[in-house]
């Protein structure tokens, strides 16, 4: 199998999206609220994937774009070829993490996702205080949102203790069988 074929087949089998459908009209980029913060706008990502070169694939996996994408679904909704770009972005993030080549600007976002998921893994639900604490440790950005804490507490928006579900094991099992034992970075 040629390199081009193998990469587009990989994208297709993991995301179900056939990037060859993209005819580069740019409608996705035109309506993207994050395009100005991306190193490659969405239609450019599609083009890089279309070339099928391993080099370009890695460019995409190392890009900032895939991490600033908000999955707002505007691009998919308006795409004349109905290409599910947000879904491709999900797949690219997963792959980027797997290869350990995520963009440095993504570290906060990744730290957020990891803190978020580790909370769920442990209690079955999101405990925001715990997540925030873990996130601060991961990013060492201890001051972020500190000013918010007193008012959040007074408005009853933070719970001091986590809610734990009864069947914690069920959720733990889901994590074990999907992401496996999480690799720390």
């Amino acid at each position: 199998m040629s390199e081009k074929k193998s990469i587009s087949t990989h994208v297709k089998s993991t995301s179900g999206v056939d990037v060859s459908h993209c005819y580069q009209c740019g409608k996705c980029t035109a309506g993207c609220v994050q395009a100005e913060r991306m190193d490659y706008p969405p239609q450019y990502i599609m083009r890089l994937l279309q070339t099928g070169s391993e080099e370009n694939y890695e460019k995409v996996l190392r890009s900032r774009s895939i991490w600033v994408c908000l999955n707002c679904e505007n691009c998919y909704e308006r795409c004349p070829q109905s290409i599910d770009i947000p879904h491709v972005m999900d797949m690219l993030r997963e792959e980027s993490l797997k290869r350990g080549i995520a963009h440095k600007d993504a570290s906060k976002i990744i730290a957020f996702h990891r803190s978020f998921l580790s909370q769920i893994k442990n209690t079955g639900r999101l405990w925001e205080v715990g997540m925030e604490a873990e996130y601060k440790l991961r990013t060492m950005d201890l001051m972020q949102d500190v000013k918010l804490v007193p008012s959040m507490l007074s408005k009853g928006k933070l719970s001091i203790l986590p809610e734990v579900i009864v069947d914690k094991a069920a959720v733990k099992k889901i994590f074990d069988r999907t992401v496996g034992v999480e690799k720390e970075k």
């Binding site: 580069q24 009209c25 740019g26 409608k27 980029t29 035109a30 993207c32 395009a35 100005e36 490659y40 706008p41 969405p42 239609q43 450019y44």
Partner: peptide, 9 residues
Amino acid sequence: VDTLLGGEQ
């Protein structure tokens, strides 16, 4: 968008 400018909005 101007795709000839690499996707400039």
